[in-house]
């Protein structure tokens, strides 16, 4: 991901900020200025960060920039509000995972371009642990 794209997508990556189509009554991620179904102009939509694991796979040989974190889990996460999203899972051992596992969004280091480069931060998901999991009772 080049610097301009990193900068342009920062709100979506850091805090799962998506888009909402008022005509279809559906939230979208990643955000688009127009709805991919009807072309209607969208508005900003903040996802709760809660979801469940739809499917997952363990990466043991990572591409450039990701090798320092192997083995890691890449999952399809079904967000509470609907969209399905590909994302890394973190703070979890592959053996602990199951389909349907509840997860919450956290912001973590996605890749590091070395001492002369920048660090790319992005959403990841983990089993509920902290800020999303206020006890209800």
């Amino acid at each position: 991901m080049d610097g301009a794209r990193q900068w342009r997508t920062r709100a979506a990556r850091y805090s799962l900020l998506g888009a909402y189509c008022g005509r279809c009554d559906k939230p979208e991620f990643p955000p688009r200025p127009r709805c991919p179904r009807c072309g209607h102009e969208t508005t900003e939509f903040a996802f709760s960060g809660r979801g469940t694991v739809y499917s997952y796979s363990v990466v043991r040989q990572g591409p450039d920039g990701f090798a320092d974190q192997v083995p890691y889990v890449v999952a399809l996460v079904a967000l509470e509000e609907g969209p399905l999203l590909a994302a890394q899972l973190t703070d979890v051992e592959p053996g602990e995972l199951r389909i349907g596992q509840p997860v919450e969004m956290v912001t973590r280091r996605l890749r590091d371009d070395g001492p002369q480069g920048t660090v790319l931060y992005s959403y990841k998901f983990r089993p509920p642990r902290g800020w999303q999991t206020a006890p209800s009772g």
Binding site: Y14, Q69, T90, V106, T107, R108, R109, V119, G130
Partner: peptide, 13 residues
């Protein structure tokens, strides 16, 4: 810290 954690990620949480 985890492999993907630093002062930025901890500050955000």
């Amino acid at each position: 810290p985890g492999l993907d954690e630093d002062v930025v990620t901890m500050s955000i949480e």
